[in-house]
Amino acid sequence: MATRGFVGRRSPEETQKRLPPGQHRVEDFPILQIGPNPVIDLATWRFTLRDGAKPLKSWDWDAFQALPRTTWQGDIHCVTKWSKFDTGWEGVSFDDLLADAGIAAPTDFLLAEGYDDYSTNVPVADLVGGRAMIATHYDGAPIEPDHGGPARLLVPHLYLWKSAKWVKGLRFTKKDEAGFWEMRGYHMYGDPWRDQRYTGD
């Protein structure tokens, strides 16, 4: 149905091609989160891979810094309708984490867990092959707390709520278990190009 009198302000064609359905481009970097920023001390920061409750491998901040570095540049898309183009990130790829731990992924799904009470589910297939990292730098500088620093997950081909801020670990799960937003009606997978915002999309 057309909305009476709505013309819209179309972006240039080049921009439109890069915008998933329902998204618009922003130049700033909006901040969305469920609560206050958690207080995180790098001296006690740890990042842990778990299989269910069982720890598989854990890194402190210095050990994490010694891992191979990965960079990624591209567009990110938030379920609240904004997209930001040409963002630059640096961190440690999921592949390199598994390699350093000397393991293969024990299951096909996991929950990324934050230092706040946040969690979000992602299939392992979406993290391997250079598709995801634990990012520590944004546009060349350490990630600010507002954007999830000191370390956040980055899965840029999914809506940004999947890229958990203040991440403290990844927990492999036998089944695809819903995280914080997924339990509250948001989509289990969250592909921006398929407009998968909410359950049923």
């Binding site: 057309a2 909305t3 819209g8 359905p21």
Partner: peptide, 10 residues
Amino acid sequence: LTAEDGYRAQ
């Protein structure tokens, strides 16, 4: 909102 030509904004 949907324009006559199908363009949409949310």
